[in-house]
Structure formats: structure tokens, C-alpha cells
Amino acid sequence: MIVLVQVLFTISILSFALVAAAADLNRTHATNPVWVPHARFHVVWQVATHIGAGLLALVVLWAPVASLPARFAIAGAIAGVVLVGFFVTAATMPLYGGELADSNGYRPLTLDIAGRTRTFDQNVLLFAGGVGFLLLAGALALTL
């Protein structure tokens, strides 16, 4: 059960430290010629910070540097700060004129569900999944 909890935490961490990083370090974001250079600087800085935070969380999670409950709590807190930060940023978009997607970037995902077309932002899906794995890992960790 301990390894399952570690794997679930790892999936949550990789959602922002690997998957989101790969999505941002390409022509849709970091090298997007339509973006102003300072915005590109900030996205690369954000990605570098997320990768660093993810690596720190993974080391704490997997290396025997403290008690297991402490390792789970610290790794979970690091992941939670990054993942919840996404939703705080999304919730405050009206304050700074932000949008979840860029017209020359990743398009929303369109699915046919029970005969109805549904549209989902890919960022929201990724980070909601990360939060879901984080909550599941935390819940299981509490049973140990």
C-alpha cells in the first residue's frame, strides 16, 4: 500500500513537473512568436520552477530522508501549492484579463458524451487530474 500511495503522489507531481512542462516548452508557449518576449520569459521561469518543485517533491517522497508520514505531507504540500495555484490563477482571470487557452495554442478538447457535445479545457483536465491523484494519495496515506 505504501508504494501505491507513492505512485499516486508521483503521478500528481508529474502532471505539473513533466506533462505541463512539455506542453509549455514549445511553439504554443515558450517560443510562440505572437507572445511578447516578457511573457515567454515568465512561462519558462514558471516551468523551471515547477520542474524544480517537482524534483524536490519526488526526492522527499522516495528518499528515506524523514518518517513516511512527514515525507507524504511535505511532498503533498509541494504538489498542492503548485496544483492549487493553477486554480487560484484561473479563478482570478477577470482581475488581469487572463484566459485559459490561447487561440494559437492548445485547443479545448471536444467530446461527445451521451449524444451531447462537451468542451473541456485541456489545462483544467490536466490539473484537475493532478488534484484528483493528490487527494486519492492523501486519503490512502491517512489509512496507513
Rank of each mutant, 00 (worst) to 15 (best):
Q122F: 05
V19M: 02
F127P: 08
A90I: 15
V19C: 03
F133N: 02
E99T: 08
V19F: 00
V82G: 06
F16G: 06
L111H: 14
L134S: 04
L142C: 09
W45D: 00
H29D: 06
A114G: 09
R27T: 09
V131S: 10
F9Y: 02
A75R: 05
G132S: 12
N32M: 06
L95A: 03
A101F: 04
Y106G: 00
F120W: 13
P37F: 07
V34Q: 15
M1P: 10
A77M: 00
L126V: 10
A48Q: 03
L83P: 08
Y96G: 01
S103I: 13
T110M: 08
G54I: 00
L83E: 06
A139H: 15
T117F: 09
V44P: 03
A20D: 07
L125F: 03
S12P: 02
L4W: 14
W62H: 09
R71S: 01
G85F: 01
A101L: 11
V36P: 14
D121G: 05
A48S: 04
V81I: 14
F127C: 04
R107D: 05
G80A: 07
A137Y: 06
M93L: 14
A30Y: 11
G85M: 06
V82L: 02
Q122M: 07
A30P: 07
P94T: 14
V65R: 07
W35E: 13
G138V: 13
A66K: 07
A77W: 00
F72W: 09
A63K: 14
L68H: 06
V44R: 01
I74N: 02
D121H: 12
T92S: 12
F41D: 11
F127N: 11
V131Y: 11
V43G: 11
G54L: 05
A48H: 08
